[in-house]
């Protein structure tokens, strides 16, 4: 049975960029002007793209900086809303888009596990049940009680990755996290993602490392001039 996990249908997306002309002063002056200033200067990121990802697929997104990889993940996760078209999600979705986002700097590791998990839709009892597994996987040991702001980038990655990957989801969206963290932890993460694939979970990973994506993913797509193209 090859049921879909994600269906993107005729998706178009414009990134909203507010024009400098939309200050209150300019807005007031524009009342008396014949020609109106445009409020925004939107950037077209995607135009009529279609994509069908089946359950258990590992999909890679490869392209240069600023072409829309993270934007596509945010669209799938629902942080951004499509300008046109639609995205259908079949199952629970979880994301590791920005390891520094979604965390409270003053809160300690345990509190941050709760914050991230609650905002990902987990119940308190579910978090309580999983918390030991998350702390063990992150290898943060006693540092788990220290404020998040005292963590190094690698430690932050361990906490965020462990919290997200050990939550019970069907679709995992992972954005260029590979570059952060030490080699040993990277290996551990890849092993965990492989386990997820075997469990028929869907994984979408973005990276600028094409060799890694080719080795790890079933399909690799590239974003070129607002279009999504199959690379492998």
């Amino acid at each position: 049975m090859n049921k879909f996990a994600i269906q993107i249908i005729d998706l178009s997306f414009e990134y909203y960029i507010k024009n400098d002309n939309s200050s209150i002063r300019k807005k007031l002056f524009s009342i008396f002007q014949k020609t109106k200033n445009k409020e925004n200067n939107n950037k077209v990121v995607f135009k009529d793209i279609n994509l069908n990802i089946s359950k258990g697929d590992a999909v890679g997104l490869y392209s240069s900086n600023g072409s829309g990889k993270t934007t596509l993940l945010k669209l799938i996760y629902g942080v951004y809303k499509p300008t046109n078209g639609q995205i259908k999600i079949n199952g629970k979705c979880n994301s590791i888009i920005d390891i520094f986002a979604g965390s409270e700097n003053e809160a300690n590791g345990i509190e941050n596990i709760y914050i991230r998990s609650l905002l990902n839709g987990k119940s308190k009892s579910n978090i309580k049940k999983n918390i030991k597994k998350i702390i063990d996987f992150s290898e943060l040991k006693d540092s788990i009680n220290n404020p998040f702001k005292t963590y190094s980038s690698g430690m932050k990655l361990r906490l965020v990755f462990s919290t997200s990957i050990l939550s019970d989801a069907d679709i995992y969206l992972i954005d260029e996290w590979i570059s952060v963290g030490d080699a040993k932890f990277q290996k551990k993460c890849l092993k965990k993602i492989n386990e997820l694939k075997k469990k028929n979970k869907t994984v979408i990973i973005t990276s600028q490392n094409i060799d890694f994506l080719r080795k790890f993913c079933d399909y690799v797509y590239t974003i070129n001039n607002t279009k999504l193209l199959l690379k492998k």
């Binding site: 945010k74 996760y77 629902g78 942080v79 994301s95 888009i97 920005d98 520094f100 986002a101 979604g102 965390s103 905002l119 990902n120």
Partner: peptide
């Protein structure tokens, strides 16, 4: 900001 940019809430 960090929460708004990370979670679809």
């Amino acid at each position: 900001e960090t929460l708004i940019k990370e979670f679809p809430i």
